[in-house]
Design a protein around this nucleic acid. Sequence first.
DNA 1: ATACATGCAAATCTTTTGCAATCAA
DNA 2: TTGATTGCAAAAGATTTGCATGTAT
Lengths: 134, 134
Amino acid sequence: MQKELTYDAVMSYSGHPSADDIYQMISKEHSSISKATIYRNLSILSDEGKIGRVESFANGEVHYDHRTDKHYHGHCRKCGRVVDIDLSYDNDFVAKALPMEDGFSITSHELIFEGICRDCREKEKKNGTEGIKN
Amino acid sequence: MQKELTYDAVMSYSGHPSADDIYQMISKEHSSISKATIYRNLSILSDEGKIGRVESFANGEVHYDHRTDKHYHGHCRKCGRVVDIDLSYDNDFVAKALPMEDGFSITSHELIFEGICRDCREKEKKNGTEGIKN
DNA sequence: ATACATGCAAATCTTTTGCAATCAA
DNA sequence: TTGATTGCAAAAGATTTGCATGTAT
């Protein structure tokens, strides 16, 4: 079953592979595997919590902002909306994180809160339970 | 000049518009404007710092991780690599942010440090100054 | 004239989906 | 047999690019 192969590939990968990275890795040994299967299995595996998914706003869309000052954002995982979170931008993070990573020089950071926005919460209440995709 | 239109549209937009949102907005008044122009101008404007860009790993690629525990990441803005940052996951953020946003219910957060990884730093040293794209 | 800005269409890139074939219980 | 899994090709969605035209200096 290709799902095992996919899982094993992710587990043996030291970094943070993209779907294509995994495809490259597996197809060396199993040249007939399909990319669609890799995408499907990675998605399933991370939904199941068996592997992690590193993402933020992973819909491939860039969002722009009339604010240019550093601030944080909330991301509704139901409708995809991005809202401002008015926590003050904390430069101490950089100082805290700096000594942890030898070699990686940090210039800034982004903090994204995942959750559900008010509108979607209200819709949920009305419509009763509704599956949350993603 | 369409760059002005693009800028004005972003500034008058209350939320966090995507390129398509801006296109929809402008094309109502200027039906002949091209989507490519919107993309080009948004990109230029945010490079110039005149508007903000809300993104993380904004290459449209999802990265997977053999770790499933919550932790933070560094993103090399030169080569795109994702590295682990071993700061402990701080659940207090949620508590701190919760009261700020009425209606938005937070379930988790992501913290991404932007910077330059060791490899790219070393390459820079060797090759002298080299433009950093993006 | 020279460099820059635009529209259009085509190309790219990542991811998703429809469908028929295959495998497993 | 019935349902889940796969490969393949096509589709979808966001963004970029080549190119010819148009505009400004």
